[in-house]
């Protein structure tokens, strides 16, 4: 556990110093909202359409972070330095997933209000709690799959290609569940709580892949 915190702290410090990931994700999201405005030719959107636009934007923004997650480890010897230490290797998975989760949360703190201002018709106020719960589950899925995919892709040539190529299909079920769970929340006279069915699917997805990632991650570090 202390190893996880050590690595996580280092990642936060590194992001603070280099500002490579979170600002890029935020700018990308806002630019995407503008593109959706023109692409859809709509001043405001609501309901399932709004949920889809928000989910897809966050997903693609997340892929930017996924691509960068292990680059410093690979290029600056972070993997070797970590592997030389007498610590549990799975800690790296947990720490990286936690870092990605934190980056996504920071992204959403800016991107969701921006979405509310730029595109969303109904007010963001009433469904906010439900939306936070759904996005937290979605971020967990993105963090787990993103970390796994990033660890695979970073060792390949053309890693910027391999990451999204594997990540997108793997994330489709999570995307479906997120968009469907958020749809009723963003409707004009929306309900305040997300549909339980989709929250359950999302939670199941998180659970299965978190356990699976934990089981296979060590094999990505061996040499």
């Amino acid at each position: 556990m202390s190893t996880v915190l050590t690595v996580l702290r280092k990642d936060m410090l590194l992001e603070l110093r280099s500002l490579e990931t979170v600002p890029a994700m935020v700018l990308f999201s806002i630019a995407t909202f503008v593109i959706f405005h023109f692409g859809l030719n709509r001043a405001t959107i609501d309901g399932q359409l709004a949920a889809g636009v928000l989910t897809v934007t966050l997903l693609f923004a997340a892929l930017l972070g996924v691509n960068r997650l292990f680059v410093a480890e690979r290029e600056q010897g972070g993997f070797d330095a970590f592997l030389l230490a007498p610590v549990d290797r799975s800690a790296l998975l947990v720490a990286k997933a936690a870092a990605l989760f934190a980056f996504l949360a920071m992204l959403e703190v800016v991107a969701v209000p921006a979405f509310g201002v730029l595109l969303l018709g109904p007010s963001l106020g009433p469904p906010l709690l439900g939306l936070i719960a759904v996005l937290a589950l979605a971020d967990l899925a993105l963090a787990v799959i993103g970390t796994l995919v990033s660890a695979i892709a970073v060792q390949s040539r053309a890693r910027d290609l391999i990451g999204p190529l594997i990540g997108l299909p793997l994330l489709i079920p999570a995307l479906i569940a997120t968009a469907r769970a958020a749809g009723p929340l963003l409707a004009v006279h929306g309900s305040g709580s997300p549909p339980g069915k989709w929250v359950a699917v999302l939670a199941l997805y998180d659970l299965v892949f978190a356990l699976l990632a934990y089981a296979v991650f060590d094999f990505l570090l061996e040499d």
């Binding site: 202390s2 190893t3 050590t6 690595v7 702290r9 280092k10 410090l13 590194l14 110093r17 280099s18 410093a72 600056q76 010897g77 972070g78 070797d80 330095a81 970590f82 030389l84 230490a85 007498p86 610590v87």
Partner: peptide, 24 residues
Amino acid sequence: AHEPLLYRDLSGRENLRYQARLHG
């Protein structure tokens, strides 16, 4: 090693403190 195994964006002290924590 041939490579220094240090993060380029962190300071020397931060790098060493990070590794020190990993090694207890």
